[in-house]
Amino acid sequence: MKLAINGTTRTFDGDPRTTLLDFLRRDCDLTGTKKGCDHGQCGACTVLVNGQRINSCLTLTVMHEDDEITTIEGLGTPQDMHPLQSAFVDHDGYQCGYCTPGQICSAKAMLDEAKAGWPSVVTEDLTAEIDLSGDEIRERMSGNLCRCGAYSNIIDAITDVKEAAR
């Protein structure tokens, strides 16, 4: 079966037990996607599948025939960073860096979700337009743990990008 990863078509015919996460890290040599818990409890493995953020540890590669996967490597490179990547650097939105690719992929999709009008549990009026406040971003980014505790800076980084996109 085939799937597209960062725009490149890849073939998978391996052990069906292979998670998308392990396929990316091992077979595609895309180790930017991190394994933090392997059980959907930390968010370090967040990637975009057809534009939506998911935990790549809790899905099997074989389930993704013809899907389009975007990993952190597909968002930008050290020489040509995505605005979110630059903002994380400028705001020190990380420390050890291990949760960071997942945070950034998550933030990318989160901004798109808000743009599409998706509410969150802190949205007061479910039928109103989404105002992506700090509290909204905090809630929406809570699926990405950062044990170093960079949350405050992560919010600043994402807020910067959100404002710039206005």
Binding site: T31, G32, T33, T77, Q85, F88, G97
Partner: peptide
């Protein structure tokens, strides 16, 4: 800014 920052945010820090 952290010198290794671009590598970390791009997933190339190993």
């Amino acid at each position: 800014n952290r010198l290794e920052g671009p590598d970390k945010v791009s997933g190339v820090a190993t």
